[in-house]
Write a protein that binds this DNA or RNA. Sequence first.
DNA 1: CTGACGTTCTATGTCTGTCGTAGTAATTAT
DNA 2: ATAATTACTACGACAGACATAGAACGTCAG
Lengths: 117, 117
Amino acid sequence: MEIDERTQRISADSIRGYTDIIVLYLIREKPDYGYSISKRIRLTSAQKYAIKETTLYSAFTRLEKNGFIESFDGTISEGGRRTYYRITDAGRDYYRTKCREWRLTKEVVDNFIAATD
Amino acid sequence: MEIDERTQRISADSIRGYTDIIVLYLIREKPDYGYSISKRIRLTSAQKYAIKETTLYSAFTRLEKNGFIESFDGTISEGGRRTYYRITDAGRDYYRTKCREWRLTKEVVDNFIAATD
DNA sequence: CTGACGTTCTATGTCTGTCGTAGTAATTAT
DNA sequence: ATAATTACTACGACAGACATAGAACGTCAG
């Protein structure tokens, strides 16, 4: 799956701190693994955001260390062992908190966007 | 000017990368200096965001180094020499770019916010 | 006139999330 | 066979925000 080079895209620096939300959102209904999540991020964002592999995998490490996700081995297929991640109850709480934070951030930053453009 | 401890506030980590927008917005009409800008951030955000002094002053350094703002000395009053900052043309361009980036970021992140809460 | 508080700014080092680069290894397509 | 895709790991660099500290001046109550 390639990415369309013509559509405008954002860097993870502008999105920094919200990778957690993105990951947790995508596994909130059923567990999933890295490569698949990566593809779903591109799909869900309409190709506007392509997460870097290292960014994603380091998010897994961080989230698991904090008890927000749990990992388990899946079947070996299409290119090696898959590690699946499942959201925990603490992860759901954390997700809700981060969503609230996001809404607040939007409110605040929007105050500093000039009406004229 | 104190801050109301009861209202919910955000940390600069959630807002990371958008300090520049905030500063540029506040000097887009007339130059201003650090302490004043700091107070205006709290006002404009309805006390939801209180920027840390170090964060603000390091933003000045960065913005000036990149040619987005210019500094000049103001009158000495109420506690020492004031350094004023004025936005440059490049700064105005940069501000517009960052605003566009912000809108895009909102679009993207909003895709990962569950409707239910 | 003194001391507390508010104003104005600087210095220095730490932490964290993202990124660049690189590499391993298996499966699938040509 | 070998290229491309899938799947993941390791390591070091960087930048923005932070904590802590301090210098130096102004104002105002007691």
